[in-house]
Amino acid sequence: MLANVPFIAFALIAIIGLATMIMRKNIIKIILGLGLLEGAVNLFLVALGYRQDGIAPIFTNAPSTKMVLPTVQAMALTSIVIGVATMALLLSFAVFIYKKYGTLNSDSINRLKG
């Protein structure tokens, strides 16, 4: 049961993120919902790679040889970096929209439609 806690946390955070994206009208909140989803996926990645007592494969002065290939950790790091870039881009778009349209309500950001 205890081993499943990270996965339950992942599901909760992901659902909160998804619900935020669908139910909130403000673009900033939608972007923050995306941030939550991103965090959830990163948590899922790291939780997948956790092995009890496993250590990183650095052989110098290694206390044991029970080592884990840190692929998911590398993936999570990369994904965090990508997430930062995405967030920066999306928020800068939101700033421009606010400047030009005077609103951040997603119901009004629909001048392109039909």
């Binding site: 929209i97 001048r111 392109l112």
Partner: peptide, 27 residues
């Protein structure tokens, strides 16, 4: 006049969300 930014925002938003689902599938 903000129209291109609106298009870019929609594109970036939906492709990032889709990208996260993709990453979840990969995981």
């Amino acid at each position: 006049k903000g129209l291109a930014v609106e298009a870019g925002l929609k594109y970036a938003l939906i492709s990032t969300v889709a990208g996260l689902f993709f990453l979840l599938g990969v995981a």
